[in-house]
Nucleic acid binder design. Structure first.
Lengths: 204, 204
DNA sequence: ATAGTTTAACCAAATGGTTAGTTGAGAGAC
DNA sequence: GTCTCTCAACTAACCATTTGGTTAAACTAT
């Protein structure tokens, strides 16, 4: 029955992610997770030791996945414009991947959770924050970009990108977006365009 | 004994806001709220009928306050540049006001709560979303702004602004901001500057 | 004024439903 | 025969809500 085990642990994790996303750690019900995973409650305690541990496992799996994604896609690029365009595309590309997980992530951020720092620190490489500020700095020094505050600008860039990820359901209603797929597809280019234009030196 | 009453209800509301912000609706403990408010638990049920009702009261009070603030400060402005600068300053000005409340707001947004639509719809006036898209549209038509997607741009602008409000504790760590007050003070101008520069027509 | 009545504000302790976590017996695979 | 997995029934704790009061201010008829 070994094969079934891995299945059931997998099923539990998936069900747990949905449950935690919908209700949060406190609001989530272990019985409901078991039912959703077509598993017995005892199985949850057999595979994971507690509700809390299950929760942390869900988060860790997802974070390490995202980490790898970042490492594979954003390091080792030279052209500043290219980096920002790639970043913007990266945010869109993780959209579907992260959508179900986002509520968990946001609640963790709200709570100031320690779990979150790991995502943002990118161990064993340059952190995304450093990559951004560094790129802007270089652009300024080379005369490519205007002389603006590096950190304010980096924050603005991340905000433009992540805000849409976080708020897309709300944004959809407020901006009356009918075709979300199309809007999403155009998003990365629109962000990079606005941002790079805002940075570029004017020759007037 | 009338004076005492209003005090205690007030104290409970204040304590409840903190408790709900920290732990969410499910995680919040009525006992803890009572203790924090130096009130008896039964008093909470006397003034507000249930934990749920108390929660809703906390949200409603805050939302109606924010509403009034928006109405008093953002309507009836003509110059497009001015509108964006004011918006950016508005977000910063509610910073302290909203900081303790933000976790509640975010959790509501995550949950897709109905409570939230009221904030964003701004009844009895132009909604903030319409104000922004309208202003951008006018700017484009007058040749003041480049010809870009109005909704993408509006979303980017709101994102630049709100993301900082939401993430300031995280941003502080990642960007190694020591003097947050100063950073905050410079924020509105930095955002408006980047945004307006990104929109403006280039004469090259 | 004042005794008598009502009412709002307050409280400690009990109630009862819910739920995380446990247990122990058993089924099937190898 | 033992290891992995499944299950229903259990329990201990937690926690929202209720109960059954007390207190003191405010009103009212005398």
């Amino acid at each position: 029955m070994k094969a079934r085990t891995e299945d059931s642990a997998e099923r539990i994790l998936k069900a747990a992610e949905q449950e935690f996303a919908k209700y949060g750690l406190e609001g989530a019900r272990v019985d409901r997770i078991a039912k959703k995973a077509s598993a017995n409650k005892a199985m949850i305690y057999y595979h994971f030791r507690s509700k809390d541990k299950l929760y942390r496992t869900v988060i860790e799996k997802k974070l390490s996945y995202l980490h790898e994604f970042i490492r594979n896609n954003l390091d080792n690029i030279e052209d500043p414009d290219r980096i920002f365009r790639n970043f913007a595309e990266f945010y869109i590309s993780i959209f579907d991947e992260i959508r179900g997980f986002l509520p968990i992530l946001l609640r963790e951020i709200i709570a100031g959770g320690e779990n979150i720092k790991r995502l943002l620190q990118n161990p064993g490489g340059v952190s995304p924050a450093e990559l951004l500020t560094g790129t802007i700095q270089k652009g300024i020094e080379s005369g490519h970009f205007r002389d603006i505050d590096v950190r304010q600008t980096a924050l603005s860039f991340v905000g433009m990108n992540l805000f849409y990820l976080m708020m897309s359901p709300v944004a959809k209603i407020l901006l009356e977006i009918e075709n979300e797929d199309e809007f999403k597809k155009a998003r990365a280019a629109a962000v990079a365009d606005l941002f790079l234009n805002g940075l570029r030196v004017r020759n007037e």
